[in-house]
């Protein structure tokens, strides 16, 4: 295993374009082994482009993306999945007219069918009893919260080393948001690194170890979650409404 102690995922001066639009500007991130790293920022600041750059849906114009010490920016999406990066996509993006079980099968697409697959399915069912109940239902008929469970289960089926989550709390009821963040911590405790784009900054900073703040395609701030929580600029920009007034 190359550089077993180096970062798991690393962006080095990455620039990504959509046509003429310069979306990511000299972006650097480091996601360590076993870390939860959160990416904060407003709309259209490059968060989703970051996810697409990691997954190989868009290729950077310059810079390096390394996973486990190996440059991956030229590799196909499938190859990246095989190396251990799995996505939980924005708005879940389940295959709506496939059953929940078939969605899990798609999550395990890179693996051969066998006893390990069965064990993975059982682990997902054990973690998400609701997913087991709904296994023969079309994924499109599930509630948003249930779909998010399936989306996370689907990512786990790939036996990933890192999961990239794009807005895991978006469109969920507060109860489910709470639950999703708990699950993220459990998954992380099992040794899977998490890179998470999230609008809900206060929740994200509660579970993340570190975070980056992205503004119009540039990393403007980074640090441990505690540092960011205590940063007055962050409190104003991202935690504003959720700030509890200090007791007089």
């Amino acid at each position: 295993m190359p550089e077993a102690n180096g970062p798991l995922l690393e962006f080095e001066a990455v620039n990504t374009f959509y046509g003429d639009l310069h979306v990511l500007k000299d972006v650097c991130y480091i996601i360590g082994r076993g870390e939860i790293v959160s990416l904060l920022g407003g709309n259209a600041c490059g968060k989703s482009t970051t996810m697409k750059t990691i997954m190989g849906i868009v290729r950077p114009a310059s810079g390096a993306v390394r996973f486990d010490g190996v440059e991956i920016q030229q590799l196909s999406t499938a190859e990246r999945v095989r190396r251990g990066i799995a996505p939980v996509l924005e708005a879940r993006r389940l295959f709506p007219r496939m059953t929940v079980f078939e969605n899990l099968e798609m999550g395990a697409y890179i693996h051969k069918r066998g006893p390990e697959f069965e064990a993975d399915v059982e682990r997902v069912y054990a973690r998400f009893p609701r997913v087991k109940e709904r296994r023969n239902q079309l994924a499109g008929t599930l509630s948003g919260g249930e779909q998010q469970m399936v989306a996370i289960g689907r990512a786990l089926m790939a036996r990933p080393r890192m999961i990239c989550m794009d807005e895991p709390s978006m469109g969920l009821s507060p109860l489910y948001v709470e639950q999703v963040f708990e699950i993220i911590q459990q998954i992380n405790a099992d040794g899977i690194s998490i890179f998470m784009v999230e609008q809900n900054a206060s929740m994200a900073l509660q579970i993340a170890h570190r975070a980056y703040v992205l503004q119009t395609g540039r990393v403007v701030l980074s640090g441990t979650a505690k540092e960011l929580r205590d940063n007055p600029a962050i409190r104003e920009a991202y935690l504003g409404e959720l700030q509890v007034p200090a007791p007089a």
Partner: peptide, 16 residues
């Protein structure tokens, strides 16, 4: 079927 329903998501499952 997955590709027909969501090509990008299918790609990110490792489908070629």
């Amino acid at each position: 079927r997955a590709t027909a329903q969501d090509p990008e998501a299918a790609r990110m499952m490792g489908v070629e």
